[in-house]
């Protein structure tokens, strides 16, 4: 291991869970969940939840627009699916499920990453046509959030179903290919300057990075064709590839190449 990016990343994921649980312990600096929240008085909002509320509810509240833009700008700069890799509690759980799946050696089927963009389209179309915010209704993120903040355990069955399918049938299918929020961020974060860089002449083609990458398709252009950066918006900026690279061929760039 040449670096240890997994430590701050895991810390961030666990901090989010602790923040959501904090009101239960009587602490007041955090309110809400990943759909909309107040952190030390700073209002934060999920931009996709904002879009659904805007399209389906036809209400616009300016401070809400501001907080959604703030969060969108944050992920635009950090790039790709940073949300999926560092923040999302479902990501944390399916990541642990993935470890189990590898041990069992089951569920090797993969679905294409583009599907998440289609499911984003489906969500936006549904809310425009029927006024039903499909993602807020079905979102396992919301289900986990409420399970923690309001101790409601039954809806966690949805999460259990996702985990079951991911472990036995298709690897990380929800996060990779079905989650509309992942699709949303993969579009939003496509042009970020924070990217994984690739130095071709250092690469030994051991393929360690491909084995740890949750969305290994994003590394293909670099490894096969020598592209100098991972440009795909689907990269979750988890930097597991950087951690795994013994030859130091992968690094973190803060600029375009």
């Amino acid at each position: 291991m040449s670096s240890k990016w997994w430590i701050p990343r895991r810390t961030a994921q666990l901090t989010i869970l602790a923040l959501i649980a904090s009101p239960l312990l009587g602490m007041t600096f955090f309110r809400g969940n990943l759909a909309a929240a107040d952190l030390f008085g700073l209002p934060l909002a999920d931009p996709l939840a904002f879009l659904q509320a805007l399209i389906g509810g036809m209400v616009i509240v300016l401070p809400y627009l501001g907080s959604a833009l703030l969060v969108a700008a944050f992920y635009f700069i950090l790039g790709g699916r940073t949300f999926c890799g560092w923040i999302c509690p479902v990501g944390l759980i399916t990541e642990l499920g993935e470890k189990l799946r590898r041990r069992m050696g089951s569920g090797e089927v993969t679905m294409p990453l583009t599907a998440s963009r289609w499911s984003l389209g489906l969500v936006l179309l549904t809310v425009a046509m029927t006024g039903i915010p499909l993602f807020e209704v079905l979102s396992p993120i919301g289900i986990i959030n409420r399970a923690i903040a309001f101790v409601s355990l039954m809806p966690l069955l949805v999460l259990a179903a996702i985990l079951l399918v991911e472990i036995t049938v298709s690897r990380r299918v929800w996060c990779r290919s079905l989650c509309p929020l992942g699709g949303f961020y993969s579009i939003l974060g496509r042009f970020s300057p924070v990217r994984v860089g690739f130095i071709e002449n250092r690469c030994t083609h051991c393929d360690d990075c491909l084995r740890v990458c949750p969305v290994e398709e994003v590394l293909t252009p670099s490894l096969k064709l020598g592209a100098r950066q991972v440009t795909a918006g689907d990269c979750s900026r988890c930097f597991a590839c950087v951690d795994s690279c013994h030859a130091k061929a992968l690094s973190i760039d803060l600029f375009y190449k």
């Binding site: 969940n33 999920d46 904002f50 659904q52 389906g56 509810g57």
Partner: peptide, 10 residues
Amino acid sequence: RFLAACVRCG
């Protein structure tokens, strides 16, 4: 409209 406008943040 409430069903769509509510983002279920609690």
